[in-house]
Nucleic acid binder design. Structure first.
Length: 747
RNA sequence: UGGGGUGUCGCCAAGCGGUAAGGCAUCGGCUUUUGGUGCCGACAUUCAGGGGUUCGAAUCCCUUCACCCCAUCCA
């Protein structure tokens, strides 16, 4: 199917291929301080999914380092979520708190190495000393304490001798680091708090940055996936594991973008607010994006899983459209659940020419769902249809019952409206109709054409049910606060009518109520005497039935982008630039790149001494060599070698294409260019007599593309050139090939 | 403002110097006793903008712009 792997799977694959780890081992590491939501589901599918795909393992670990916010109720919800999604964690559920003794020992190790110290500044001072994003911080005066003193203080911190906030263990890194997270990060704080697992045995607790990487290491995790906001913490992750000199292999952290969905909120803080303020009914309110909410609403685990796979993994902050999630659940339920008839807003219909009663056998599944099962539909002269399925003054394109338009009662007869009965207010309260006895479904010989078939229930046998119709929780795509709550997010219908088999036979717990949507028997409030169904999602509505949405067709004018100011050159750079443009005749862009970069310009000057070809040298250096400087600490090749390479281009021994290849080899091995060319036999082929047969062959093999090209798709020239070049191992002279291909295809 | 990251269709997202994948949404047509489903088709001359290198650039170089993250003893 989708053969392209996401970037994380690609990394795992490469590491496995390189033999970096014998087996991949991931982990899902939530903090048990809130209910898991669909963002967690993305992380769960990612971590467990990668482990599954590469025959590896995945742990479930509670990151419980903050005793004041965490609770065992949340760990249960987290376990439920993973299980519900169908994953199995390796071994027991892990807890960071299980590693407190080990983490403590590592802290002591760091102190002994002189890499950590006990600080005794108060919180205000700590903040002050940290500096700002533009200003360096300064080191605490306590940073110079002796190892012995640090050891002593730290032990007494652990023993609970000091009150909260008096001392801290910090890593000794760099208070001037550009990455603020590296300004002597805090490793341990004193907290005289009851922990839900360790009780009162600890007076100090490690912070995320110290505990997380070590927990990963302790568990033998190979790839530690987390969300983008931890990118700044990446350096600490590496610092801790590296300075501790742990026996390899060790885990590495990789970041991906968290999930956002429009018309909802995903942050734990906002979710907690909704729950605590009673705006919704608890963590499992079906309007919430929590796993518990989706579960209660009737979403299937498969649909959530499919959704998570469809949206992909990447590093760009993004906002997924709810429509994508709704597609996932419809798509899943479509082939699974029975169709039944429910009338949400009943309108009585009396069939004046029908006497007695009958039972009609009807399939639970439409023709395109390969499942078996039927039920009996009672039928008599009194039935109910949905109010919207009758229109006295129908708009254009209305398919259902009108005074002049008959309609089919699904699985039963065609009826024609005879009389519309209204109450004192003029509201329609009943329809009198006639049925056509020869129009029965399956044996219709009436010849009457109808435009649609509607759902109905028989009056006496129908059961009353409560329907909870859910809609998006917020009006705004990106809700700012609870003011944006959608007032119609929950509509309760107390007296909908449903066909009896649904209640008496209970063939399933999820149904499609025909022409309405998918519904789920509420797992908590449903009772046989008082059935309750939650609306999972509406059926998709084609535009014809929708109230024609006003088409807003404004052409987004191409936005003009203002260019900012370019930083001016220094005097020295200016001189170089003048020289390059005036004397050496370099184009200004290349000259600019070279002039502004001391390393590059020096490299250029050196190479120029060997081979006097300023333009070609400058081009190669300002592009290819510049990249190497950017990516690598030190270069594997010298200006002399680059000069030799350019010389070969100038002499047309090799093409620019080959030059790129040679350059790549040089950057890997540092070999001389001549040697590389010799060894690989990269001398270019420019003889048309040699190239032409290859081109002919390729043209013969790709008639479709030839036709497309000749029809005007000139981009395909690149395709043919590329193919030819590939066939010659890159040795054909691209200029010649280009010319030849163009000529051949033009014929 | 210093550092880190990201910009490919309305929304996700492949792509890693040689024909701009795919899904959602949207719009047509066919099928249909669900205005559902299914099927078929349309939907980026262009990859945030501007330059440069190259026979050839979404991909390499330079530069500008926009957005996100970092100054909790949270994670």
């Amino acid at each position: 199917m989708n053969k392209s792997k996401d970037f994380l799977r690609r990394i795992v694959q490469e590491d496995l291929n390189a033999g970096k780890y014998p087996q991949v081992h991931t982990r899902f590491p939530p903090e048990p301080n809130g209910f898991p939501h669909i963002g967690h589901a993305k992380s769960i599918t990612l971590n467990f999914g990668i482990a599954r795909d590469f025959q590896g393992l995945c742990n479930l670990r509670m990151d419980d380092t903050n005793p004041t916010t965490e609770d065992t109720a949340y760990v249960e919800a987290l376990k439920d979520a993973v299980e519900w999604l169908g994953f199995k964690w390796e071994g027991n559920v892990r807890f960071t708190s299980d590693y407190f003794p080990e983490i403590y020992a590592y802290a002591i190790e760091l102190i002994k190495m002189g890499k950590a110290y006990v600080d005794s500044l108060n919180d205000e001072e700590i903040r002050e000393y940290r500096g700002t994003v533009t200003q360096e911080g300064k080191r605490s005066k306590y940073a110079d304490r002796s190892i012995e003193e640090n050891l002593d203080l730290f032990e007494r911190m652990k023993n609970g001798e000091f009150p909260d906030g008096t001392h801290l263990l910090r890593a000794k890194i760099d208070m001037a680091a550009a990455n603020m997270k590296m300004r002597d990060p805090i490793l341990y704080r004193i907290r005289h708090a009851h922990h839900f697992r360790t009780g009162d045995s600890w007076a100090i607790y490690p912070l995320y940055d110290f505990a997380h990487c070590l927990s990963d290491y302790i568990e033998g995790i190979t790839h530690s996936f987390c969300t983008l906001e931890f990118e700044n913490n990446h350096d600490i992750y590496d610092w801790v594991l590296d300075t501790l000199n742990l026996t390899p292999p060790r885990p590495y952290q990789y970041e991906f973008a968290r999930l956002n969905i429009n018309y909802t909120v995903m942050s734990k803080r906002k979710l907690l607010e909704l729950v605590e303020k009673g705006i919704i009914n608890g963590w499992d309110d079906p309007r919430l994006p929590t796993i518990a909410g989706y579960k209660r609403r009737g979403y299937t685990p498969e649909s959530i899983l499919n959704f998570c796979e469809q949206i992909g993994i990447a590093k760009a902050n993004s906002m997924v459209d709810v429509a994508q999630l709704e597609f996932a659940i419809r798509d899943d339920l479509n082939t699974k659940v029975p169709r039944v008839m429910c009338v949400i807003n009943p309108l009585k219909v009396t069939i004046i020419n029908y006497e007695g009663s009958e039972e009609i056998e009807a399939s639970y599944y439409p023709h395109d769902v390969p499942k078996e099962g039927t039920r009996k539909l009672p039928f008599s002269k009194e039935i109910y249809i949905n109010k919207d399925d009758f229109s006295e003054n129908p708009p254009k394109g209305y398919f259902r019952l009108t005074p002049n338009q008959p309609v089919r009662l699904k699985y039963a007869y065609i009826i024609t409206c005879q009389e519309v009965i209204k109450d004192a207010n003029g509201d329609i309260i009943e329809i009198k109709a006639i049925y056509h006895p020869d129009s029965k479904s399956g044996s219709d010989s009436s010849g009457i054409k109808v435009k649609s078939a509607i759902q109905w229930v028989e009056a006496k046998s129908a059961k009353k049910v409560e329907l909870r119709l859910y809609d998006r929780l917020f009006k705004d795509e990106i809700p700012e606060g609870i003011e944006a709550i959608n007032p119609d997010s929950l509509k309760i219908i107390k007296d909908a009518l449903i066909e009896p088999a649904v209640i008496t036979d209970r063939p399933d717990e999820r149904f499609q109520f025909e022409r309405e949507g998918y519904f789920y028997a509420d797992p908590i409030d449903y009772h046989d005497g008082a059935p309750v169904f939650n609306k999972i999602v509406a059926l998709k509505e084609s535009s014809a039935k929708k109230k024609k949405a006003p088409k807003t067709a404004e052409r987004p004018s191409k936005k003009v982008q203002i260019d900012g100011e370019v930083t001016p050159m220094t005097a020295e750079e200016e001189t170089r630039f003048e020289y390059y443009t005036k004397e050496l005749k370099l184009n200004s862009e290349v000259a600019n790149t070279l002039a502004r970069d001391t390393k590059l310009s020096r490299f250029f000057q050196e190479a120029l001494k060997i081979h006097n070809s300023p333009i070609n040298l400058a081009n190669l250096i300002s592009n290819e060599v510049a990249r190497e400087f950017k990516q690598k600490e030190s270069l594997t090749f010298t200006p002399i070698q680059i000069a030799q390479l350019v010389k070969m281009i100038d002499e047309e021994t090799i093409s620019t294409k080959i030059a790129k290849e040679v350059f790549e080899a040089m950057s890997k091995s540092g070999e001389n260019p001549e040697k590389i060319v010799q060894e690989k036999g990269l001398i270019q082929i420019s003889d048309p007599a040699q190239i032409l047969p290859i081109i002919n062959d390729i043209i013969a093999k790709n008639p479709d593309n030839v036709a497309k090209y000749q029809a005007g798709n000139k981009k395909l020239l690149g395709f043919f050139v590329g193919q030819t070049l590939k066939a010659t191992g890159g040795k054909a002279n691209p200029k010649v090939v280009n010319e030849l291909v163009g000529k051949r295809l033009g014929e």
